[in-house]
Computed example of a mutant assay.
Amino acid sequence: MIAVGIVGLGKIARDQHLPAIAASPDFTLAAVASRHAHADGVPGYADLETMLSAEPGLEAVALCQPPQVRHAAARAAIAAGRHVFLEKPPGATLSEVDDLARAADSAGVTLFASWHSRFAAGVEPARAWLADKTITGVDIRWMEDVRQWHPGQDWIWQPGGLGVFDPGINALSILTTLLPCPVWLEDALLEIPGNRSAPIAARLAMRTGDGAPVAARFDWRQTGRQVWAITVETDAGTLVLDDGGNALTIAGARRELPSEREYPALYERFARLIGENSSDVDVRPLKLVADAFLTGRRSSTEAFYD
């Protein structure tokens, strides 16, 4: 069993990481570092540095804090010889993630930039079906109510917090897994509330290396039914991934899929990487978001209050 510590015991850690670790045959929760919360049955520390010093048997850490502060924490864990699991997005900037990859390689520890939506039940069957098809177009709709899914999270509206790209990057992580060829951004429109620094909605126009158009719409103002869907048009019919990748329909036929287990699969992947003494640091989804911020047109929209 690999002794792992969680840093940042917020909603995602409680909802996903704690249950996944509790059910894992590979990991045991050894400690938690969090300013405002504690987990039952394990030591709690105010910060990562104190946890690393007090827990010499700790072999790995899962960093679940906001991305703006994750680089320094990952650097400290790597320097202490611990394997590192990065929640998505893996950093606030591409250069930060590149620095961490080099540091982990030099230290001989594993760095895992996790993308949980890639482990949704329908993603791998969809990727396998698309492998020999000609893709003629892709349409992405990732539309949810920010007040329901990110209540009171001010960091997400600040520079580096990504705004609507925090969930939207999940769709981009699936997209870059599904497509057998590269994809790049051609145009973007970011709608930014007058009292915030990050977008509440975005539209992206992309294109695959084979020339197929890819359109994406991300919106945090959705009420009623929440939408997390990717539609792929091919020469053999239409493929639809819905429910964030956990429902799959091909040519009108719904496929039977196993139950959702994204985070257990992430920890299985982390354990394999540690066993292989290797890392997995894919930044393609983050590159597309960075390109949108670099080249996207900006439109001011009404102020948002949580």
Rank of each mutant, 00 (worst) to 15 (best):
W115Q: 14
T136K: 06
G108H: 12
D99G: 13
A128G: 00
V84F: 04
D98F: 07
R75S: 15
V138L: 10
A72G: 12
V123F: 01
H83I: 06
A128D: 13
A80M: 03
D99M: 07
V138E: 11
T136S: 15
D105W: 05
F112A: 08
A80Q: 11
E87W: 00
A73F: 14
G137C: 05
A101N: 13
A113I: 05
V109W: 09
G91W: 11
L86D: 03
R127L: 02
F119S: 03
R82S: 03
A128C: 01
H83Q: 04
D132E: 15
F112W: 11
A79T: 14
A107F: 10
H83N: 13
K88C: 00
A131S: 15
A128V: 13
E87T: 02
H71M: 12
A76E: 08
V138A: 11
V109G: 10
A92V: 04
A74R: 07
A77V: 05
A72C: 00
I135S: 04
V109N: 12
S106E: 15
R118K: 12
A107M: 09
A92L: 03
L86N: 04
G137E: 07
V138N: 10
A76T: 11
T134H: 14
W115T: 00
V84L: 06
P125T: 01
D99I: 03
A79H: 07
V109I: 13
A128P: 00
H71R: 14
D132N: 13
A113P: 02
F112I: 05
E124C: 00
R82F: 07
F85V: 01
A104L: 10
A101K: 15
L94Q: 06
